[in-house]
Simulated assay, not measured.
Amino acid sequence: MARTRRAIRTPEQGVDPLAGIAELAGRDAHGVPADLLEGYLEELDEVSTTRRQLRPEQLRARREVGARAAERGVTLHGVIDLHLSATWLAWRSLAGVRSATDADDVRAAGEAVFKAADAAATALAEGYEEAQRWSVRQEESFRREFVDDLLDGRNLGQLAERAERFGLRLAGSNVVAAVRSARPVVDGGEVARAVETALALRVDSRGVLVTTKEGLLVCVAPETMAEVPDEFARQVAAVLGPGADWRVGLGRAHPGPGGVLRSFEQATHALDIAERLHLPGHLHRAADLLVYRVLLRDSAALADLVSVVLHPLRGARGGAGPLLETLSSYFANGQVTAACARELHLGVRTVTYRLQRVAELTGYTVDDPTQALSLQVAVLGAKLLDWPSSDDRAP
């Protein structure tokens, strides 16, 4: 609805008929700074006499004013209202209007002035919107640089101060969740935006950062907001849809700027382990996978164990694959032969035969607790080290 303009008395004609109009226009536009009219009244005065439209350099000046208004926090509506107020307030004082001798002269001056006002408003909007786009791009650049430093562990001394700009408090403990999907998630893409928006609608998103890193969708949240990781996983599931191939790795809580990096590394390690071991489910917590990290910490010893215990399986008919699969399912099902058979869609006798073949080839039997433990750890090691494929690739 159009705003009803209050009557404002224009200055009397004198040495400068346009004097004081800028200030009047600023008040009529609810306090928009009058200096944003810089040169505009003089341009209108010229147009009213020459009947020519604004020159390119004059339109550039309006675009610059629009950009300046955006930088100063003046609304687009406000800066355009200022110029329109100045146009109608200056109308009777414009040289071309004061010198008009008949109605045709007034009409011609009016058409020229209001076309110029329309062109000026368009130029103001263009400059304003370009400044806004630049501001957004600059903010995105700052955000990207901050995220990279945060998750790469660079410039730790400055991170806490910079984090406040994005609502993060790095003095406390934070946890990091990272999503890896079949299709990498891009910064500002549809998946990242949808998850961030949905998460903000369901939890207090202050202190929560949703971003991307090397194709991963990442969520940083305070340890005190324990509900965020599970809600984050739910929103990922909703956005990606049923049947999508994705996993969430969740790091442990650590304090300080460096703590975010540690939690992020734990989250990505959890993803790697879950993928290598084909662990069921979507959410994998680093705290639940510590035993696998212990195994990987001494990969040379783990490789020796795999080689000593499992290498003889390569001599089996059909290779080591079927026997490894059977061992893995057997241990995963609590060493219950029937459950293993159901999972593998095999007969119980076939499972029993394969376990006997393992004992014959390796000398390790699942019936002996100590030997069964060695077999179980060796099978886990084989998955973590991608054995026997890794041996096949070795020179």
Results as ranks from 00 to 15, higher is better:
residue 182 A to S: 12
residue 227 E to A: 14
residue 134 W to D: 15
residue 88 W to P: 04
residue 138 Q to V: 07
residue 133 R to M: 11
residue 4 T to V: 15
residue 134 W to R: 15
residue 14 G to C: 07
residue 389 S to I: 10
residue 95 A to C: 10
residue 179 V to M: 06
residue 49 T to R: 12
residue 361 L to W: 05
residue 301 A to K: 08
residue 332 A to W: 06
residue 27 R to Q: 15
residue 102 D to A: 02
residue 136 V to G: 06
residue 54 L to H: 07
residue 338 A to L: 10
residue 119 A to N: 11
residue 143 R to N: 03
residue 1 M to S: 15
residue 112 A to N: 04
residue 299 S to W: 03
residue 375 L to R: 04
residue 390 S to P: 00
residue 27 R to V: 11
residue 254 H to L: 04
residue 290 L to Y: 09
residue 326 T to H: 00
residue 76 L to T: 09
residue 252 R to Q: 14
residue 267 A to D: 01
residue 308 V to F: 13
residue 282 H to C: 04
residue 261 L to N: 07
residue 307 S to K: 10
residue 375 L to C: 00
residue 133 R to E: 15
residue 108 A to R: 12
residue 51 R to V: 00
residue 280 P to K: 06
residue 236 V to F: 03
residue 325 E to T: 13
residue 268 T to R: 09
residue 273 I to Y: 04
residue 104 D to N: 11
residue 324 L to E: 04
residue 393 R to V: 15
residue 358 V to E: 01
residue 322 P to I: 00
residue 59 L to C: 08
residue 302 L to H: 00
residue 217 L to A: 07
residue 189 G to D: 15
residue 258 G to V: 07
residue 131 A to S: 13
residue 189 G to N: 08
residue 363 G to M: 05
residue 163 A to E: 08
residue 25 A to M: 07
residue 271 L to I: 10
residue 128 Y to F: 15
residue 378 A to S: 03
residue 167 G to M: 10
residue 395 P to L: 13
residue 116 A to C: 09
residue 242 P to F: 14
residue 144 R to Y: 06
residue 186 V to Y: 08
residue 145 E to M: 12
residue 52 R to V: 08
residue 201 L to W: 09
residue 188 G to N: 02
residue 200 A to D: 11
residue 293 R to F: 07
residue 297 R to P: 05
residue 14 G to I: 10
residue 364 Y to L: 08
residue 131 A to K: 01
residue 374 S to Q: 14
residue 313 L to K: 00
residue 85 S to R: 09
residue 263 S to G: 10
residue 34 A to R: 09
residue 358 V to Q: 01
residue 210 V to M: 01
residue 55 R to C: 01
residue 315 G to V: 08
residue 293 R to D: 13
residue 192 A to Q: 14
residue 380 L to R: 12
residue 354 R to E: 05
residue 154 R to M: 12
residue 307 S to R: 11
residue 121 A to H: 01
residue 89 L to Y: 05
residue 213 K to M: 13
residue 55 R to G: 07
residue 268 T to Y: 03
residue 84 L to C: 10
residue 229 P to V: 04
residue 267 A to R: 00
residue 52 R to M: 12
residue 268 T to H: 01
residue 59 L to V: 14
residue 391 D to G: 05
residue 32 V to F: 07
residue 316 A to C: 08
residue 99 S to E: 15
residue 219 C to S: 01
residue 85 S to Y: 02
